[in-house]
Design a protein around this nucleic acid. Structure first.
Ligand SMILES: [Mn+2]
Ligand SMILES: [Mn+2]
Ligand SMILES: [Zn+2]
Ligand SMILES: [Zn+2]
Lengths: 149, 149
DNA sequence: TATGAAATTGCAATTCATTTTCATAATTGT
DNA sequence: ACAATTATGAAAATGAATTGCAATTTCATA
């Protein structure tokens, strides 16, 4: 099973263990979100969904994302904007982000050495880390080129 | 000159080069902010200032912090809350944060190795970094102890 | 010291994303 | 089909951030 299927299955399990009912609309939103696998604002996801299923409301999209976040299937970030962004959380690995201030591109990366050093820092302060956030802001490759012209 | 004096001097310079005028109220807010040297929400700073100078309004505090942020004398962060926090930016070094989810304590740290590795990551993606943000969330030493009881 | 352009202030009003309310509809177990 | 519960849409409420505006203060110049 691919990671999308996995995510869908995890959501199904969450529904069954939490007395949630199934609904075509929410399923459509969740599927689209998982398939697209991007960093959506609620509004962005709403507009994409609306093109295909105009009868789905903003509330439903909003609630679907909040639900996914609450049950650990989506993660919420701010990336220096005034709106939250949500991305699917795959059972796979954690990652951090490069955020382009020009075009908004979001690049994901993993760096074990940094992760390791973070643990060292925490140990130094007797701090128990449950989550972390590392974001590098600047200009992506493309925007750098454009600017150079 | 200590770092507080330095910050005050930098603000004076900014005022002179930007046609800003002096005002007791704003100066009081700025001084208190710089002296306290903490991670304030606008509201927190407002309430502290109000105790000493009740005639100073929320707007003045809000605008003072925005101004300091704009001219690089304060930095703005979210730390996973719904409100922004501001802290003085000293000419000294950059730092990152450990944020306690229980008591709200904010611990600052610097780690050159991590900074170095971030540059490596950026170079890998041909990304030009202008700022970054690293936050470790969890339980501070004290809250860890309490929980263990 | 008096003047006036420009900046500052307080208060209220507004903006904007997010969240909640509530009446209605859909789902699920019996 | 029925009852109980969850899901939905539209509108209203919330709350932090921001702005509009009239009144006040600053400050260079007369
Ligand atoms: Mn991501
Ligand atoms: Mn700090
Ligand atoms: Zn870019
Ligand atoms: Zn703590």
């Amino acid at each position: 099973m691919n990671k999308h299927g996995e995510a869908i299955a995890r959501f199904a399990k969450h529904k069954s263990t939490h007395g949630l009912k199934s609904s075509d609309k929410r399923s459509f939103v969740v599927d689209h979100f998982i398939q697209a696998d991007r960093h959506f604002t609620v509004e962005e996801l709403y507009f994409e969904v609306k093109k295909l299923r105009p009868e789905i409301s903003y509330s439903t999209v909003y609630r679907a994302l909040k639900l996914l976040a609450k049950c650990g299937l989506a993660s919420e970030s701010m990336f220096g904007e005034t709106v939250s962004r949500y991305e699917p959380v795959h059972s796979s690995a954690h990652h951090d982000h490069l955020v382009c201030n020009k075009c908004g591109r979001i690049i994901e990366f993993e760096n074990d050495k940094i992760e390791k050093l973070q643990k060292d820092v925490a140990r130094n302060y007797d701090f128990l880390v449950s989550a972390h956030r590392l974001e590098l802001y600047g200009l992506c490759k493309k925007c750098r080129r454009k600017k150079a012209l």
